[in-house]
């Protein structure tokens, strides 16, 4: 089949404003959008710039807007988006070049929620693992799946309005550690997410849940955080 790719282009060394360029390619319906982007770069315009790494939906580097919605290019098949495909960078972040955006505001928000294990208690007597029951592990299983692709945060109208907002990905990271029975900094993190730039700015729009390539129930996780900040309970 013949596919028409309309791609957002911006070269900071030449352009004052972005523009779109159109490429017509032969493609199989089962090919991924990432394959088409590789072909554009390899055979049409070597200056075309985008991020990719593992190409298998694990590293999260090729999140972009495909036909108006955030997706991973490596997990999106041509047959799922049709013959006319519009490719644009993620919303709400500065464009460095073409589809490459400045992820620093995203990671700055991520770091604010202390996204690492905190436990100052002495190790168990055998000096090995801090044990956890399967039920305790299951409590935060969904939010361990995040790959930090930013598809959720950059689909959120609250983040578009202000990049001070922690955003869904940071809140997912907070959820992952707050509900971990082995972690001891839940109260500290709940205080961080309860600030005005945190949970209060989530308006339950659901764009994040729909954009997540790992199918994490993000709005549900944020809902659980909201209840935890109100009740102080983690069950």
């Amino acid at each position: 089949m013949q596919v028409t790719l309309k791609i957002f282009r911006f070269n900071p060394e030449k352009d004052r404003k972005f523009h779109y360029e159109t490429y017509t390619l032969e493609a199989e319906p089962t090919e991924r959008v990432l394959d088409l982007l590789e072909r554009v770069k390899g055979y049409h315009d070597g200056t075309f710039t985008f991020r990719r790494s593992c190409a298998h939906g694990v590293c999260g580097s090729d999140a972009m807007r495909i036909n108006g919605r955030n997706r991973l290019a490596c997990k999106t098949l041509v047959q799922d988006v049709g013959e006319r495909i519009t490719i644009e960078p993620l919303l709400g972040l500065r464009v460095i070049k073409d589809l490459v955006v400045d992820m620093e505001p995203f990671f700055e928000n991520y770091r604010k929620v202390l996204p690492y294990f905190i436990n100052e208690s002495p190790l168990p007597e055998d000096g090995r693992e801090r044990l956890q029951s399967p039920e305790e592990r299951a409590r935060f299983d969904d939010t361990t799946k995040c790959i930090l692709c930013a598809a959720c945060t950059t689909s959120c109208p609250s983040f578009w309005a202000s990049d001070d907002y922690l955003g869904p990905a940071a809140l997912v990271a907070a959820h992952r550690f707050i509900f971990d029975s082995r972690d001891e900094a839940a109260a500290q993190r709940l205080q961080i997410v309860a600030e005005t730039s945190g949970l209060a700015r989530c308006h339950t729009v659901f764009n994040c849940t729909m954009a997540c390539p790992r199918e994490i129930q993000i709005t549900k996780a944020i809902g659980e955080l909201k209840m935890a900040t109100i009740t102080g309970k983690l069950d």
Partner: peptide, 25 residues
């Protein structure tokens, strides 16, 4: 040098969030 933040009201409204986003708007 990078561009400004890549967002505007119009670009936000064009995001395809489907039913849930329609209710938000």
């Amino acid at each position: 040098m990078a561009s400004e933040r890549n967002v505007s009201l119009l670009r936000g409204l064009r995001y395809k969030g489907e039913g849930p986003m329609l209710t938000f708007i």
